[in-house]
């Protein structure tokens, strides 16, 4: 084995190189989204200055982190050309189980490991179903979503499971902060960093893009495609489980319908971030940007006093607009479509 110092340099070199190159490249590839972001920023400064209230930003970030962690996992799945509809129900099952384990006096550390395992197992089922049995990911994860939703209701008897526990770890996971930054934001940032490194610096990540490009070409390059596809769903399940723990820790309640819109929001964030649903194209950085954009806009609408009903409509429009800007060759495409009308 290598010495510790050696290991450090091994890790530091590519990470630093990556950071150094990130900024200019980002501006070149994402010119339009970057300009939009700037316009949104100016709009906010002029019309909704209260957005920049520190407490508000901290709250928004805390809320966005739950969707964010789920969206990170979703990015892996979507990059292979798959989709995971079960993330919301995994979040719910995990949230309810976590609450009930703590209710029953299980130490928090063990409870966390146990519920993370639930997420991993549900991901395994998704992965095995869509590889070994050849069930399309959309259908397989739809089925697991239904089962998970039912399980959560069954476990909780349909009622929210509240608990109280004085634990520093729990506080950090939910409402606490470290260095002024909320715990969930730390977790989101850490997952994004780990995911980014995996996709950029590990062969595993490279193979994920390859599978998204052509599953058969990857297999004929000797890539263990089945293993990677299963792992990708496990990662998504694990991320959803982490989000479930955060959700429950924030409210001290395991709610049997907590998953709600998380699946749609996370897919929206991934797509807004420029990841192609066909697979093979996209990035974690894009997903993080997508999560931030969605959360910021939702908060702005809140601050502007737009009703929750109108907010949903606005969200839909924003998804469409954002995705339009990541569609390659939009002008040519429109011309082509027009001629086939």
């Amino acid at each position: 084995m290598k010495s510790e110092a050696n290991n450090d340099t091994v890790l530091a070199k590519p990470v630093l190189a990556g950071v150094g190159r990130l900024a200019p490249q980002f501006l070149v590839h994402y010119k339009v989204p970057a300009i939009l972001f700037a316009l949104l920023f100016i709009f906010t400064v002029i019309w909704v200055p209260e957005f920049f209230n520190l407490q508000n930003i901290v709250n928004v970030a805390r809320q966005a982190s739950i969707t964010g962690v789920v969206a990170i996992g979703m990015t892996f799945v979507v990059l292979t050309g798959g989709i995971d509809l079960s993330v919301g129900s995994i979040l719910t099952v995990v949230g309810v189980s976590f609450a009930m384990l703590i209710q029953n006096g299980v130490p928090i550390g063990i409870a966390i490991l146990a519920v993370l395992l639930i997420g991993i197992v549900m991901g395994l089922i998704n992965g095995a179903g869509s590889t070994f049995f050849g069930i399309q990911p959309f259908i397989m994860t739809l089925a697991v979503m239904a089962v998970g939703t039912g399980l959560a209701l069954l476990l909780s008897n349909g009622t929210p499971q509240s608990f109280s526990l004085d634990s520093k770890l729990l506080a950090f996971l939910g409402n606490g902060s470290l260095l002024g930054i909320p715990g969930p934001v730390w977790i989101f940032a850490a997952s994004a960093a780990v995911a980014g490194v995996i996709l950029k610096y590990l062969p595993f990540g490279r193979f994920i893009y390859g599978i998204g490009g052509s599953l058969e070409a990857a297999r004929l390059s000797g890539v263990k495609t089945t293993r990677i596809l299963i792992l990708v769903y496990v990662i998504s399940g694990l991320c959803a489980a982490i989000a479930g723990i955060i959700t429950t820790s924030r409210l001290f309640v395991g709610h049997p319908t907590a998953g709600g819109f998380i699946m749609l929001d996370s897919i929206a964030a991934v797509v807004i971030g420029g990841t192609s649903l066909m697979g093979g194209r996209g990035s974690v950085a894009g997903t993080v940007a997508g999560v931030c954009l969605l959360a910021m806009v939702a908060n702005l609408l809140n601050l502007l006093g737009v009703s929750p009903f109108n907010q949903q409509i606005a969200k839909g429009l924003i998804i469409i607009i954002a995705v339009l800007f990541t569609t390659p060759d939009l002008k040519d495409r429109m011309k082509q479509q027009w001629s086939s009308l």
Partner: peptide, 12 residues
Amino acid sequence: FMASKKIKWIYP
């Protein structure tokens, strides 16, 4: 590098 067997960590 898609078929590479040697690499554990990628140096761009």
